[in-house]
């Protein structure tokens, strides 16, 4: 057998696997809503706001709910105590959608 025949058949097999991978991904995507149903039900009934990824501290467990400057509690670019602090980008405050605080009114 010529080496090129072997090589081309190996590559066709790899390409077939690659296409199979894409088809598998599509298949999983099409049943994703059923697979996700349990999670969605919990998020809806409990009003969850975050994914449970890092449980080491409150500002990594609920990054969306954390204090204003978390996960960079000291200042926006400060290094963090936890490895996950280096994985979370600084919050994008002030955000364009966040409501502005009202102008200070006169105090009596």
């Amino acid at each position: 057998m010529r080496p090129s025949t072997l090589c081309l058949s190996v590559f066709s097999a790899l390409a077939a696997l690659f296409v199979g991978m894409l088809l598998h991904a599509r298949g999983r995507q099409s049943t994703a809503s059923q697979e996700r149903a349990g999670r969605v039900a919990l998020v809806r009934s409990l009003g969850l706001t975050d994914l449970c990824l890092f449980t080491e501290a409150r500002y990594t467990r609920h990054p969306a709910m954390a204090d204003r400057h978390a996960a960079f509690q000291d200042h926006p670019m400060a290094l963090d105590h936890f490895p996950s602090g280096s994985l979370l980008a600084p919050p994008l405050f002030p955000s364009p959608h966040a409501p502005l605080p009202p102008a200070p009114s006169q105090r009596p």
């Binding site: 390409a15 690659f18 296409v19 894409l22 991904a25 599509r26 995507q29 809503s33």
Partner: peptide, 21 residues
């Protein structure tokens, strides 16, 4: 042609985004 096969295979994922009614 191998590249084309790859690109064609990739193409469906472009439209894989489904919107639930």
């Amino acid at each position: 042609s191998l590249l084309n096969v790859l690109l064609l295979a990739l193409a469906p994922t472009l439209w894989a985004d489904t919107h639930p009614a």
